[in-house]
Amino acid sequence: MTTKTPNSLPTALDHLIARSVERAGGWIGFDRFMALALYAPGLGYYANTSAKFGHMPSSGSDFVTAPELTPMFGQTLAAQVAQALEKTGTDTVWEFGAGSGALAVQLLHALDDMGRSDVRYRIVDLSGTLRERQQQALVRYADRVEWLGELPEKMQGVVVGNEVLDAMPVQLLARVKGQWFERGVVRNATGDGWTWADRPTDLRPPVDVPGAHDYLTEIHPQAQAFIATLADRLEKGAAFLIDYGFPESEYYHPQRHMGTVMCHRAHQADGDPLADVGYKDITAHVDFTGIALAGQDAGLEVLGYTSQARFLLNCGLVSRMEQGSVAERAMAARLIHEHEMGELFKVIGFAVGEPWDAMGFAEGDRSHTL
């Protein structure tokens, strides 16, 4: 399949990817392509000036995340964060990929209401344009918030990450007529777009996929490396990561034969990451078993794993909804409805040192499924 970006080629991003392909001998793995498409400085999707986050396409946005949907998301998550700060004896919240800054505002406001105005906030974000938006949203907390472009060598505190892991580049593996290939990207025949190209590989999914049928899936070395790095640098504290995904038994199910890579633009989803490069988000679902193992192998303890719905209910969402208007309750319900975000999104928690009973996993913990 060959795809082309209408009215946008040649562009600086296209030329950058083309040079990368040329230097690599005419082929790059999808993980490299995805990294450039999303994060190339000043050009990639998360590095350019498009709106990205918002309720409706009319805002110029491409998708909505839970904090933009309702402030009750961050307010409820704050209960778990406050408990974690107390249990770990730390006073800093670290957020990775802070998006519009909405979650940071919600957490800081809720923590203030709990009497934790001493809490400092650190945002680690690669995007300069998003940082500007975050700074505007967090003006009232300017004296407590600091931005970093990369992980510090050592850190203490409670880490939160909402829809961070799904945006980390993945490698594509394709089983075609019984043989495994790594699926990568090359220039198309006319030189004005990109097309898929497979190369034989020794790489395999972490579990055998039964059957002889053709099968496309992803592996997640970068997300797992991120968790290992986080474990190495987090001297004291805990981490809570929220994203859409499955344990590996579901992720690599024989019927999930088309993989999970998906793109988002103007609140519409499509499955072609080679089109409109730099103008839309590219994501893949998270293999939470791989994330849990990466954390454990690096010395972290798993506090729990459950659905977003169960996690938020455990943290007191219902009591917050009871205090809201009908419209506010309707928006918050989308966080927990099974057909909305409640079941597809999961939460995994980690701790440094001895584990403790985290409220978000008090009921409905699914760690045994990982």
Results as ranks from 00 to 15, higher is better:
157 G>N: 04
250 E>G: 06
151 L>Q: 11
316 G>T: 07
284 A>F: 02
96 F>S: 08
295 G>Q: 06
323 Q>W: 04
311 F>W: 11
150 E>D: 14
337 H>T: 09
80 Q>N: 10
350 F>P: 01
55 H>S: 15
107 L>W: 09
341 M>L: 13
114 M>Y: 13
43 L>D: 14
329 R>L: 00
76 T>S: 07
176 V>A: 12
361 F>L: 07
94 W>Q: 02
296 Q>W: 00
84 A>R: 03
307 S>W: 07
187 R>S: 13
60 G>L: 06
318 V>K: 12
268 Q>L: 11
118 D>G: 15
56 M>I: 14
292 A>C: 14
1 M>V: 06
202 D>L: 15
172 L>F: 10
269 A>H: 12
338 E>A: 12
144 R>M: 09
227 I>P: 10
264 H>Y: 11
87 K>Y: 08
192 D>Q: 14
235 E>K: 15
119 V>E: 00
15 H>C: 11
317 L>M: 06
290 G>K: 02
81 V>M: 10
150 E>Y: 05
143 D>T: 11
58 S>R: 13
175 R>N: 01
223 A>M: 08
357 D>N: 13
39 Y>L: 08
247 P>N: 07
364 G>Y: 01
185 V>S: 10
172 L>V: 12
236 K>W: 04
356 W>Q: 06
317 L>C: 04
2 T>H: 11
61 S>N: 04
131 R>S: 12
245 G>I: 01
239 A>E: 07
12 A>Y: 04
146 E>S: 13
244 Y>L: 06
267 H>G: 10
369 T>F: 03
280 K>I: 02
182 E>D: 02
105 V>W: 15
65 T>C: 01
